[in-house]
Write a protein that binds this DNA or RNA. Structure first.
Lengths: 192, 192
DNA sequence: ATGCTAACTTACCAATCGGTAAGTGGTCAA
DNA sequence: TTGACCACTTACCGATTGGTAAGTTAGCAT
């Protein structure tokens, strides 16, 4: 075959979906191989261990999120954040894969002290927050708190979606999603 | 031995800690057995399958959370909620086990359509919300949204703790926790 | 043509997984 | 005393896990 790393991103894409659905321990190399249409050892050829493949997946996730943030740049920082999180919410509702992966990674981050690939992304967000009218007079802790609150709100909504759907039905949940959007606006308005 | 189910809660307690840390797939019966100081088959004697043990763990969790909610009853519903979530936050910071278990269960709830044991607890919370001055004129969707926002805020803070600690250090994180407490107050004040 | 390397495959491995079968030993009612 | 029953144990099972070893096949520079 060609000496190109063309297949690698495809394997990472498959792994992203699986790891996001079932977590690190719930996903096996054979599953990933079957999904990718290759043998298990094809994956081990590119990624020396399952752990390495997982880290590559998280790194790709971090780059994607950073790009999404940059993509909706706006001169007014408060508007930038408002736009970004609204779009993030919209995308995550259509496809929760990435946010699920974030949550799984957070829950796993206890017992393996892996370097957290999302740090540049978070730092970028904190810088933008610091440039807003409301944010520049906040302490670092309060900026982090604002961020955790925004992310927590959105992520929790998304990963609760299946459970809430089963409990309270489709119609109520659609309205809840609208309520979430206005909560995002309200949270963003705190920085104006 | 005695024909008593005395050991069962102890096994569930061990399972709670393990499942909360590593999730369903990351936890094996042999690990649970070793932690409990008995053989793997002792567990299978009480709980027919690993899945059954997991469900028992979640049921116990649901009862515990309901009890905690009832325990801090207050005649004024808005104050009740404010007190409850403040205490929940305090406890979860000291021992994140229960909230981690909730998050794991939420992430798992996609592909096995298990009945969600936390529904009575959530319903109780929604009733209390409906009795507040601010909550009784809300739609069901808005009440759910308020709840998801409050829970999301707290839970996300807690499970991010390890990662944030590694990224931003101890001092900043302690301040962030204080900021979370005032955010909880602010969120509770929306119902007054 | 030849040798090198990248991208795989088949074959295999020990370890561990959840779970079954068949006891063992103690307690208690009859 | 007996026998049922409960809380467990040892022994074992086939399936699957992550990972190794040793090819095989194809493109490409020399």
């Amino acid at each position: 075959m060609k000496p190109s790393g063309d297949a690698k991103p495809a394997y990472i894409a498959v792994a992203t979906r699986r790891f996001a659905m079932d977590g690190f321990y719930g996903t096996s190399l054979s599953h990933l191989a079957k999904d990718s249409g290759v043998s298990k050892q094809a994956l081990l050829h590119f990624f020396k261990t399952k752990e390495a493949l997982y880290e590559a997946t998280l790194t790709a996730l971090a780059e994607r999120m950073m790009q999404d943030l940059i993509a909706c740049h706006h001169a007014e920082p408060a508007q930038w954040l408002s736009d970004y999180f609204m779009i993030l919410c919209q995308n995550a509702c259509a496809d929760p894969t990435d946010l699920r992966l974030v949550m799984h990674a957070l829950l796993d981050s206890d017992h393996n002290a892996r370097k957290w690939p999302l740090k540049p992304y978070l730092d970028k967000l904190l810088v933008i927050i610091a440039h807003t009218n409301g944010g520049h007079k906040m302490s670092t802790a309060k900026r982090i708190n604002w961020l955790l609150q925004m992310n927590g709100m959105i992520n929790y909504h998304i990963i609760s979606h299946t459970a809430m759907l089963g409990m309270y039905g489709e119609q109520v949940l659609a309205d809840t999603f609208n309520a979430l959007r206005s909560s995002i606006s309200a949270q963003a308005r705190l920085l104006e």
